[in-house]
Nucleic acid binder design. Structure first.
Lengths: 419, 419
DNA sequence: AATTAGTTGGTTGGCACAACAAACAAAGAG
DNA sequence: CTCTTTGTTTGTTGTGCCAACCAACTAATT
């Protein structure tokens, strides 16, 4: 309404784009449909559907998968998204690792690699590694996904603030990077191929929406508790970014105004209570205070070895310290989630990140806390589930990002040989 | 994306609707434009603009306002929204008052009334009063806004949860009402006229976006601190409602997990710290604790008479108690707003409700608190302003709601004589 | 004469609609 | 059992409608 940007006007091109996208979306949902059923589902005329489908087949995004003989009448030619339309390369640039994978247009991963970068210093050196791995993935994609399209696009997920307009990494506190024009760098390397750069939580959230726990939900809150606490909101399949693209920084919501100092400068941020390091700190404190725990043995006597997987292992063994720490974390998670549920009224909250490994112990506490803290009407409308993608969440989200971009605007992402 | 509802497909009707709306939106923004400049601004062809404008003139939403002689060349016929297209009746159903106003299509208020309902008991009796006042407004509109269209629609704002699909008031804690089919009741009374029912904060926020402080902003957070704390989010001129329509209940965000019990059942809700009653309570406590204040005199010796206007009056006189209470309130407001800024990344936060009377004292503290608590990138992108509409915020928002509905879908709200 | 505003007549490119051809299952006749 | 008929469903073809576009035009002014 108040948008001073040029409002998109309507013309036949727009109509065509919309309808092409509608067909793609339906095929993504139902995986296999005939032209006739597409006409019924979309409300479009049969002839229109035929024309649209033909165009999508010509672009190789759709293919005929075979006849279906169901009951009387002429059998229907089933249609589906064409996994061989091309391949997608996606990358998570983590704090101490680089994870790259290659997937076909059906979202099936054909290759993956994860490289530790803890020893590597310097932005340029790391970027060099990233580009090398991407090149490798692209080459492998070319041989393992033969046929039509070639490379459709590249996605990069980063733990930092991204300026969407330019695909620039503005600031990544944990990497200590600033103002890196990631999109341009990667795009230049691969002949101008479409490149999507986004915050890791955003990508992971989109991944869960297309491939994971959030499939079919309309208003999804994704919360990733790991090194820090990241968040994302997906509304009707679209990421919600705010004006400048930095929305959903839930980790720095103030939960306790006089709480511990956060490295963002604020006090009592949510992530000082529920991040990985907070949980580990609580555990260490409990043990140092004299409470006995199997964790001492599990950590080999050195409490610096404590980690979420170890704590989970202890919880499995009914270790009292682990259980009480997880319960405290669950309560704190619940407090924040209740506030967010009141603010966003989502139909689903997805809990991701490394802490979700302990989901079995966290979820009941979170649900209980939300139950009494959130407004009844809101709490009743919301489910709370664990993320389905673990380590690959972000990289899979990159695939989802590209898939979604193509499904939304198939005409714009024509397969063409960029390399 | 994941929306399983029937996706809207494109056809010529859609194109026409879009373009009609684009024209209306441009005219709403710029108030006066020629066909030629509309063509330039929208990118549409001159002939197309002529055709669209003609259709809008036929519906009487647009009219020619006179020739403009600027420089050489044929003078242009200026166009604008036609204030005489019809009139709008809007109503705020408050806890102890009913406020009704009548405005023309230009948003100019031609009549208003506010009735105290503190003495009136019972839902039916109050609804009777509402309908009587609405009828009066409709009659007055008919005489004061003569000409073309007649009654365009009715808006009703309520302090409660509204189910948008049906226009039903599900629950209004302060009115103690449940399940009242407001839209049907009002629509039936006025011959099936379009009726919009919404939460008061939502309406007020939309009012500020169209007529007030938030004009021209893309992502607006509206916060109304009064009896409770209400909120709303307006993104690109559209209200954000969540899945079931209960989003933006910021008042019940947990700020202090072990804080005071809120009447929602939770502890330490934001509104236990920054609502009208919280501020008054703090003031009373300070005075009872022996701090001297001009408020004792202003309240006529009875601290039960304390009110926000009185506290503001005391602040004007540099009263220490009033100033310190307002500073505390500002800090608490800032704490919550900082969290919301991190979560929504708005370009504007609007502070409304009765507490905004003390804006002069609150704003500096709020801004300071936000400055150090919110993430730098987010804080820098956000302005914080006071609402421009005071008592009429909600009712004016109702006018805005209808105006917006018509601007978005002019074809759907053809003036027709409902009565 | 130059310039800007707005209209007119014709073209293009979408979708809807209805008739049609194609491909099958089921049922009955030989 | 084979062949034919019937009925059903799929998908295509040709026509008409409608909206925007384009180019040439008229209109009104400096």
């Amino acid at each position: 309404m108040s948008n001073h940007a040029r409002l998109r006007t309507g013309d036949q091109t727009l109509v065509r784009e919309i309808n092409l996208s509608v067909i793609m979306r339906r095929l993504l949902e139902h995986t296999s449909l005939s032209r006739a059923s597409l006409a019924e589902v979309t409300g479009l005329n049969k002839s229109t559907v035929s024309s649209l489908v033909q165009e999508l087949i010509d672009m190789s995004f759709v293919h005929e998968t075979g006849l279906s003989f169901t009951g009387v009448g002429r059998p229907s030619m089933m249609l589906g998204l064409n996994p061989r339309a091309g391949y997608i390369v996606s990358c998570e640039l983590g704090v101490d690792f680089i994870s790259v994978l290659c997937a076909n247009f059906g979202g099936e991963v054909v290759w993956r690699v994860k490289e530790n970068t803890a020893g590597i210093q310097g932005r340029d050196e790391i970027m060099h590694h990233v580009l090398t791995l991407l090149r490798q993935a692209v080459d492998i994609g070319a041989t393992r996904c033969p046929g039509s399209g070639g490379l459709l696009g590249v996605a990069v997920g980063v733990p930092g603030l991204i300026e969407q307009a330019t695909g620039t990494l503005l600031f990544a506190p944990n990497l200590q990077w600033r103002d890196v024009p990631l999109r341009d760098i990667v795009s230049a390397e691969f002949g101008g191929v479409p490149v999507f750069v986004d915050n890791e939580a955003n990508m992971a959230a989109l991944g869960e929406t297309l491939f994971g726990a959030a499939k079919g939900y309309n208003e999804v809150l994704y919360i990733s508790a790991g090194v820090g606490v990241g968040g994302a909101v997906v509304r009707n399949g679209q990421l919600v970014r705010g004006t400048t693209g930095f929305a959903s920084e839930f980790g720095h919501m103030t939960i306790d105004p006089d709480g511990a100092l956060c490295n963002c400068g604020n006090r009592g941020c949510w992530e000082t209570l529920v991040s990985q390091s907070a949980v580990i700190r609580l555990t260490r404190q409990a043990i140092s205070a004299g409470r006995s725990s199997v964790l001492e043995a599990l950590a080999g006597g050195d409490l610096n070895n404590l980690s979420i997987p170890l704590i989970v292992q202890a919880a499995v063994q009914q270790d009292a310290v682990a259980l009480s720490v997880l319960e405290a974390a669950g309560r704190n998670l619940g407090i924040g989630i209740a506030s967010l549920i009141n603010a966003f009224n989502p139909d689903l909250v997805v809990l991701g990140g490394i802490l979700s490994l302990a989901g079995q112990w966290l979820l009941p506490t979170v649900r209980a806390e939300v139950g009494w803290r959130a407004l009844r009407w809101n709490a009743e409308a919301t489910e709370i589930l664990l993320a389905q993608h673990g380590f690959d969440a972000c990289a899979m989200g990159g695939v989802a990002t590209l898939l979604q971009a193509i499904v939304l605007e198939p005409g714009r992402y024509h397969p063409q040989n960029y390399l």
